[in-house]
Computed example of a mutant assay.
Amino acid sequence: MTVVHPNQRVAVLVDSQNLYHSAHSLYSRNIDYSALLEEAVGGRELVRAIAYVIRADSPEEESFFEALIDIGFETKIKDIKTFGDGSKKADWDVGMSLDAVTLASHVDTVVLCTGDGDFSRLCSHLRHQGVRVEVMALGPSTAEELIEATDSFVDLTDREETFLL
């Protein structure tokens, strides 16, 4: 990843659900969030690191949430919603987007860790506001429109030994 300058202020926003499902469907492995954060910051000044997570009442999730905090992430937790027909839904797209827009005036770069194409419009908006936008995700499950909307794309599959546990 190219560092524009070391004094650059960076916010790292991680769509944990998206990365989890991508890593599991492609590799049956988990993301190394410590390596992810280190690469995302890239020697620059970290302003905020937020991991957006879903509480699905699985046994290991509380220790995962604690591990994220130990690494240096703030966690924003949303409970999964179960509808009358049994379907489940939970995502952080609006929350992540609002945080990115709010943080834009306080940072030089926003690093989005997601492959979700719904964020391509956000990337365009942030770039229009003069914010550098970098995306880190697993290439095979990253939307083409998201890659095209960023200043820089890091494909985690290029260095799976670094980014996957």
Rank of each mutant, 00 (worst) to 15 (best):
N7A: 05
P6M: 13
D93Q: 15
L13C: 09
S97R: 01
T2K: 15
T109N: 04
L146A: 07
H5Y: 14
T162L: 04
L98E: 01
R9I: 08
G72L: 10
E39L: 09
K78N: 01
I77L: 02
T150I: 02
D155E: 11
S22Y: 10
Y52Q: 03
L146H: 11
S152M: 15
L46D: 02
L165F: 13
H106N: 01
L26F: 11
R29T: 08
E160L: 08
A104H: 06
V110M: 09
L26A: 03
L36G: 00
T102S: 12
L36F: 12
T157P: 05
Q17G: 04
L164G: 08
L126V: 08
A149T: 13
A40F: 13
N30F: 04
E134H: 09
S141T: 14
G95D: 01
L37E: 14
L68R: 07
T102G: 06
V4T: 08
K89Y: 07
K76A: 01
L165Q: 15
V101T: 13
T114F: 08
L112E: 07
V101G: 04
D151I: 14
V3N: 15
H125K: 14
L46R: 00
G72R: 03
V133L: 02
E148D: 10
A149G: 09
I80T: 07
G42M: 12
A35E: 15
G43Y: 05
H5K: 13
H125C: 02
S152D: 14
R48E: 15
S87C: 12
T82N: 03
T75R: 14
N30Y: 04
V107D: 05
K81E: 15
V12K: 06
L122I: 04
M96C: 06
G42Q: 10
L46P: 10
G139S: 03
I69K: 15
T157V: 11
F73Y: 15
